[in-house]
Design a protein around this nucleic acid. Structure first.
Length: 424
RNA sequence: AGAGGGUUGGCGGAGCGGUUUAACGCGGCGGUCUUGAAAACCGUUGUGCUCGCGAGAGUACCGGGGGUUCGAAUCCCUCACCCUCUACCA
């Protein structure tokens, strides 16, 4: 959420930022917001004044009662009737204005950081790094869904039977490969200083608002019937909300948490070419990193997290590239994002396997995640997160890149985790 | 799931209709004393919003929401959560 005080003082900058993100009718939205804000403040001023008068009256009545001046007290009571009804009316108006303003603010995305490149879509993202040798593997002729079938690693039909499309069943060595990756990613994160967390994978509405999934992504989460609870689309939601309404001691910073969770996404309306096999699922596993850090240091964390995910991909010997998202491709709540993509030789395409973002104060303002500075003033912290890493596409890339005519080799670093060196 | 008891500031813990301007203690910060420190003593100490250049002023907040009352931390209703006992379960 953006700061209304900031918007008031930096109207043009805010509009420019929103336009960089290709937010529709930015200028109009901000003008409207400022009108609501003006109304809200005027109403609050009136309401506060009326309340101050009433408080004075009540104090007098109290004194009169104690002095036994019942007649005067009764007379004074009459005065309060008008004030009370005025206050009631104003308070109702104020509440409406506050809610309107709040909703308007919820609809505004975060502003992009100054370093974010201009651009409208993924095509305009900036390439930051690309592995030197993108595999030219003549044997890599099959996409992973064919390989998964051939070696009986993933059964998509069984998933259809018990749930529906997008809920694959991993079997045998496929299941073990998945579990191996989870353990590998968690162990690596532990060594990098992250605390392991097992959060709930269902969250309440407040939590979904906190990280920005609501109201923006309403309809993309699975909601439990007759409740306002949601299956998490990412561990980011419970992890970051662990610190909601906390004033964190500076010694505790930076907070570094890691969690493995299943993730659920309805992905409504996304049909077609790129959704085959493991490319896009309704349920998938992910290991997620989350950091909370001082504002002036948060971009160090972003670099650190991005470099960390790069090391993981290198350890898995996967060819990858890093792109800096342009304004138009940035997520709703993000101020800056690096995407990491691995090369899938069987499909001859790049698959996004990680997204590392700095939300600056966008989430922490919604959640009131703060610290005390040297002057004992409470200030908002910055929140960040990054996938490390989303499992299915890593599995896809491993299968496709490491295939031979008769087997799939497992990268050496994973072998202690899988217990087998190849799938034959 | 049933019965009962709870939820107060950074923490502990009073308050049960009107100097609550939330006692008291601990912790934190500042100061006095001291070569320095400790102890002691003195002062200070929450969050949001509004107004103000500022000093500051106003207002709201005692788990959430609603009600009674001139006035609610205090009384009533309701929801959430916690604890104890009983039942059940992995």
């Amino acid at each position: 959420m953006l700061d209304i005080h900031y918007i008031r003082a930096n109207k043009e900058l805010v509009i420019q930022g929103l336009q960089k993100k290709y937010f529709n009718n930015a200028a109009e939205a901000i003008e409207k917001l400022l009108v609501i804000d003006q109304q809200r403040r005027a109403t609050q001023w009136s309401a506060d004044n009326a309340a101050a008068q009433l408080n004075q009256c009540n104090k007098q009545i109290g004194q009169l009662m104690q002095q036994g001046e019942k007649k005067e007290a009764t007379a004074a009571k009459a005065q309060t009737t008008v004030l009370k009804s005025t206050i009631r009316t104003l308070a109702q108006q104020l509440q409406v204005h506050e809610e309107t303003l709040q909703h308007a603010l919820y609809e505004l995305p975060n502003l992009p950081n100054a370093e974010v490149p201009e651009g409208k879509s993924a095509a305009d993202n900036t390439l930051v790094y690309q592995s030197s040798e993108v595999l030219v593997n003549d044997a890599a002729q099959w996409p992973h869904w064919e390989l998964a079938k051939k070696y009986a690693l993933v059964d998509f039909e069984l998933g259809n039977k018990i749930m529906g499309a997008g809920f694959p069943v991993y079997k045998g060595r496929g299941a073990r490969l998945q579990r191996a990756l989870i353990n590998f990613f968690l162990d690596e994160a532990l060594h990098a200083g992250y605390e392991e967390i097992q959060p709930p994978i269902v969250v309440n509405e407040v939590s979904a608002y906190g990280t920005g999934q609501l109201p923006d992504k309403e309809g993309q989460m699975y909601q439990l019937k007759d409740t306002t609870f949601y299956l998490i689309p990412t561990a980011e939601v419970p992890l970051t909300n662990l610190y909601r309404d906390e004033i964190l001691p500076q010694e505790a910073l930076p907070i570094k948490n890691v969690a493995y969770t299943p993730c659920f996404r309805r992905e409504a309306g996304s049909w077609g070419r790129h959704v085959r096999g493991l490319n896009r699922l309704h349920q998938f596993d992910k290991v997620e990193l989350m950091q909370i850090r001082l504002p002036e240091e948060s971009y160090k964390s972003l670099q650190e997290m991005c470099a960390y995910v790069q090391r993981l991909l290198e350890k898995l010997e996967l060819p990858y590239r890093v792109v800096k998202l342009c304004g138009g491709d940035l997520g709703f709540a993000a101020a800056f994002t690096y995407d990491l993509e691995v090369w899938a030789a069987g499909q001859q395409c790049w698959l996004e396997v990680s997204s590392v973002s700095n939300f600056e104060t966008y989430q922490s303002r919604r959640m009131r995640i703060r610290y005390r500075d040297e002057h004992h003033t409470t200030r908002l912290l910055h929140t960040l997160n990054g996938s490390a890493i989303a499992l299915p596409r890593i599995v896809a890339a491993l299968l496709e890149n490491n295939q031979t005519a008769s087997s799939i080799s497992i990268p050496p670093i994973l072998q202690p985790y899988t217990g087998f060196k190849a799938i034959e």
